[in-house]
Design a protein around this nucleic acid. Structure first.
Lengths: 211, 211, 211, 211
DNA sequence: GATGAATGAGGGTTCATTCAT
DNA sequence: GATGAATGAACCCTCATTCAT
C-alpha cells in the first residue's frame, strides 16, 4: 500500500526534511537539496515528479499514526486508564522528538496550508488520531476515573502544542536552565523526562478536575 | 525610540502581515504585497529598505511585551497570587488572539530562524517576558501558594504552545464540536473562554502539585 | 481597440518574428530573442507576459485583413470584375511578400496548431477574408463574367498556397532561373511580377472555365 | 543502398512522423515518441543516434520520387501530352494525400531549414523532380501542345502549394462547404476529386495560354 | 517624494543523451 | 541487444531590487 522508496530516494527525503525544517519549504531550493544530497538537480523531479510531490512524500511517510499504540493500550489489562493515557503521552513525546525535523516542518505547513494534498493528509490524521484518543478517554470515563466532559481537541492541543513548541525553544530552554554542558543525548533525555512529568500533571488535572 | 510609521507604511505592514500569515514569508512576493495594498512595488524597498526589513519592522512593532501588565498585577493588592497568574493567562490569550495573523507568522519564523535581527528580537522578548513571569511566580512562592520548584519556560511553553497551536487548528476544533453555525465573533469568544478555563486548570495543577 | 506597442516592444516583436521565422517558435528560446534584441531576458515576460503571448501579439498585429481593400474595389466603378479580382491578387502578393517572415511563421503555426488563441485568430481571419472575397466573386457572377459555381476556399488555397510556397523556395527558384546576379530588390520585383501574371492566368481560368 | 529498418524502427518512425506532424519537431520530445510507441526512451538514440537522425531517416524514406512515374508516362503512347501531365498531377495528389503527416512536417521543415542533411535532401529532391517534369513538359512542347515558355518551378509551386496548403486547411474547407457529415474516407475522396479537377484547369491554362 | 521601466540572479522543470548493467 | 537510472544543459519565468525620471 505505502509506496516503497529506494535508498537514494530515502536519502533525498532525509536531506530535504533537514533543509525544509531549517529554511522552510519555499526557502529551500531544489538546487540546495540536490547539492546537500550530492546528486543532480534534475533527480528531484525525476524521482518525485516535483518539489511539492517530494514534500508530500515526506508527509505521507512520516505523519503520525497512533492507532496501533492505542489498540495495544486498550487491550492491556495490567494498566489502569490513567496509565494508558500516560503511556500515550510518552508515545507522543517519543515520536515527535524522534522526528523533530519533520514536526518543525509540519508546524510551518499547518500555518501556511497551501498544498491541498498535505492539507487533506493532515486533516485525516487529526481526525483519525482524535478518534483513537476518544476511545481511550471513554474507557477511563466508563471506569469513573475521568470526568464526564473532556474537550479532547483542546487536550490534544496542549499535548502537541507543548511538545512542538518546545522543539523551537530547545536552545532557550537549555540556556535558561544552564544545561549547556550536557551532550545532545543527555539533554534530550532530560527534556523528554521533564516533558513527560509536566504533561502528566496537566492531563491528570484535565481528566479529573470537575469545573 | 520606536520608529513612527506613516499611514501608508502602516497599511503596507498590515497587508504584509496578512499575506505572510497566509502564505509564509518566502511564499509572499513583494508584488503580492504591493498589489494587495494598492501601491507601487518599488515602495517596499523604498520605505523599508527590503522585504526582510519590512518583516523586521512588523516584528518590532508587534512583539509581545508583558512588562506593564506584570507591573500592574504585582502592585494590585486586591488579587491573590493565583488571580494574578490567571489575569496574565487571559492577557496572553487576548493578545495572541488579537494578533492572530502575527502569531502565525511568528510560529513559522521561530522554526525557520533565518533572519538574525528577528532571532535576536525574539530571544530578547523571551528573556524579558520570562523574567517578568519569574517575578510573578516568586511572588506566589513567597506567599506559600505555589510550590517551590516551578519550571517557568516549560509552563510558558504550555501556555503559548496551547494558544498558538489552536490558532492553526481553529477550523478543526470548530468542526469537531459542530460550532459552524456560530459567527466569527461568537466562535472566538467561545474559544477564548474555553482556553482560559483550560489553561487555568493546567496552571493551578502546575503551580501547586508537589511531584 | 488594437493595443499600442512602445518602440521597444515593437523592436522585440520584430526580432522575435525574425527568429521565429528562421527557427520556429519552439526552436527559438527567449534568450535568443533577448540577446538578438540586446535586452534582458526577463523583458519578454515583462512586456508580453510570456513567450507565447509575444507570439500572439505578433499574430494579432500582422494578420491579414483585406476588408478595406475589398470595400474600395467593390465601389470602384472604373474596374470590371476581373480587374477587381486581379487587384486583390496583387494586394495579396504585396502583403505576403512584405511580411515574408510573418507568413513563414504562419505557415508553420497553421500546421502545428497548438496555441488556441492563435488557432482562433486564424480561423476568424480565414472566415472574414473568405466572406469578403465571396462578395467580390458574387459581383462578377452578377455581371455574368464569372461562372456560377466557384469553389472559393479552393481558389484561395491556390492563391495563398502558391505565394507562401514560393516563399520557402525562393532560393531554389533563383538558382533554377540563374537569377543570382540580381539584387534582393530586383529579384523580389521579378518574383512579384511573375507571381502576378501566373496567378492571374490561373484565376481567369478558374473563374470562367465551365467544367 | 537504402537502409533497411527493423519493425521496431519502422514503428518508431511512424510514431515520430505522427507526432512531428502534430506538434512540430521541436515541440515533440523523445519521451513523447517513446511513450506513444511503447518503447524505452533510450531506444531513439540507440537506434537512430539522435532525435535529429530519426527525422533524417523519416525524410530519407518518405521523400517523393517521381522518376519512375515520369518514365512510365513518357513511354506510354496511348496518352497525349496533356493526359501525361494530368496523370502526374493525380500522382502528386495521391502521394501527398497518402503521406499527409509527412508533408505537414515537410512544410514546416522547409521553412525552418535547420538541419543541413535535410536541407540537402530536399534540394536534391526538388532538382530531381523538376528535371523529370522538364522532360514531360518538353515532350508536350515538341508536340506543339504546350506553349514555348513554361516556368516549371512556378507551376510546381502552384501544384504543391495548393495541395499542401489544403492539408492544413482541411477542416476549414470541410466546414465551409458543410461536409461534416461525410466520413474521413468520403471526405478525402471528395477533396482529391476536386483538387484534381481544379489543378487540371490550372495546368491547362498555364500550359496553353500565350501571354 | 514617488514611480514605472528595467535588470541579474535564481527559481523549478524538462530536455536529449549517456552509461552501467 | 536492450534498458532504467542518471546527468548537465537549457528551458521559461518570477524574484527582489535599482535607477532614471
Amino acid at each position: 500500500m505505502k509506496p516503497e522508496y529506494s535508498i537514494k530516494q530515502q536519502q533525498l527525503m532525509d536531506t530535504a526534511e533537514q533543509l525544509f525544517s531549517r529554511k522552510g519549504f519555499e526557502g529551500t531550493s531544489v538546487r540546495d537539496i540536490a547539492e546537500e544530497a550530492g546528486i543532480n538537480t534534475a533527480m528531484i523531479s525525476y524521482y518525485f515528479g516535483s518539489k511539492e510531490k517530494l514534500m508530500e512524500a515526506i508527509f505521507e511517510q512520516r505523519s503520525l499514526n497512533i492507532k496501533e499504540q492505542v489498540d495495544i493500550l486498550l487491550k492491556d489489562e495490567r494498566l489502569d486508564a490513567f496509565q494508558k493515557v500516560y503511556h500515550l503521552v510518552d508515545e507522543y513525546i517519543d515520536k515527535i522528538m524522534q522526528r523533530k525535523k519533520f514536526h518543525r516542518i509540519l508546524l510551518c505547513e499547518e500555518v501556511i496550508n497551501q498544498n491541498p494534498v498535505i492539507v487533506e493528509l493532515l486533516a485525516k490524521m487529526k481526525n483519525r488520531n482524535s478518534s483513537w484518543i476518544s476511545d481511550l478517554i471513554r474507557h477511563g470515563q466508563k471506569k469513573r476515573l475521568f470526568k464526564k466532559q473532556v474537550d479532547i481537541p483542546m487536550m490534544m492541543n496542549t499535548l502537541i502544542g507543548t511538545i512542538t513548541h518546545i522543539l523551537v525553544n530547545l536552545e532557550f530552554y537549555r540556556s535558561y536552565h544552564n544545561l549547556e554542558s550536557l551532550s545532545e543525548e543527555e539533554f534530550e533525555k532530560v527534556i523528554k523526562k521533564r516533558l513527560s512529568a509536566h504533561i502528566k500533571i496537566i492531563f491528570k488535572a484535565i481528566l479529573t478536575n470537575e469545573s
